[in-house]
């Protein structure tokens, strides 16, 4: 039984058809990467999964349960289970690092604040930011902010983690520190959906790679195959272009 199952799903931004008949299956503990040119619908797919973009038609099942994104109760359940980290970190600018990580578990999940704080400090230590608990987002570098964002998503104890181009906004020398944090999670066996342009990283961590173009899924394959022996012409065009640029 797949943990996430998406069937013939269509979604629109106003009139723009951003997801066209999308079919995805993700098994528990799997790390699935989404690659493709910008505007191909990768981020939209992640946003749709947490209900920031409501699908028009199709079906989404999480743990074999159909999710109706128009229902508030279903949205709550999905957002309990799925954590998301954004390209622009989106930390709350009015809260320090520790508060950013703790606020949702305490205020929304109503968990014990002492225990949440302990967990938050542990997570922040894991991403190497234990000395920044009292800092505010604008005092941190992009890489540090992104690692806080990862800790914030994890502190909600999600079953699934979505990472939306988490290194795209970072300076090259900061990319590694964030990727290291993700590697650590990958080894913990968390289900992850990763949108990334870091092809070597994608190749290294993913169990499956999905190539998207223009809102549709073009190819789903093992990372070795996608990069070295793609089935579709569009995939090989994209992959060879990306690898040439590097």
């Amino acid at each position: 039984m797949p943990q996430i199952e998406i069937k013939s799903l269509n979604a629109y931004y106003d009139k723009l058809h951003v997801l066209k008949d999308v079919e995805v299956k993700v098994e528990k503990g799997e790390i699935v990467s989404l690659i493709g040119p910008s505007g191909s619908g990768k981020s939209s797919l992640l946003k749709m999964l947490v209900g920031l973009l409501v699908p028009q038609s199709g079906e989404v099942k999480i743990n074999n349960e159909i999710i109706d994104y128009k229902k508030k109760a279903d949205l709550r359940i999905v957002r309990e289970k799925i954590g998301i980290v954004f390209q622009q970190y989106n930390l709350f600018q009015n809260m320090n690092v520790l508060k950013n990580v703790c606020i949702a578990p305490i205020k929304i999940q109503k968990r014990d604040s002492k225990k949440v704080e302990e967990q938050a400090i542990e997570l922040l230590e894991k991403v190497g930011l234990k000395d920044k608990l009292k800092s505010y987002p604008d005092e941190l570098s992009g890489g540090q902010q992104q690692r806080v964002a990862i800790a914030r998503a994890l502190c909600l104890n999600p079953e699934i983690l979505l990472l939306d181009e988490v290194t795209s906004a970072l300076d090259p020398e900061l990319v590694q520190e964030v990727l290291d944090s993700i590697r650590l999670l990958a080894s913990d066996g968390m289900t992850m959906l990763i949108v990334s342009h870091e092809m070597s990283f994608v190749k290294e961590v993913s169990s499956k790679v999905i190539f998207m173009d223009n809102g549709s899924i073009i190819e789903v394959n093992k990372p070795e195959l996608i990069f070295e022996n793609p089935k579709e012409k569009r995939t090989s065009d994209f992959v060879s272009k990306i690898l040439k640029d590097k």
Binding site: V50, G51, L52, R76, N90, A104, I108, L156
Partner: peptide, 16 residues
């Protein structure tokens, strides 16, 4: 808008 997105993805309500 990204601040709204981040918060609603964590199950904050509109008023929260």
């Amino acid at each position: 808008q990204t601040q709204w997105d981040a918060a609603s993805a964590m199950n904050f309500t509109y008023f929260q």
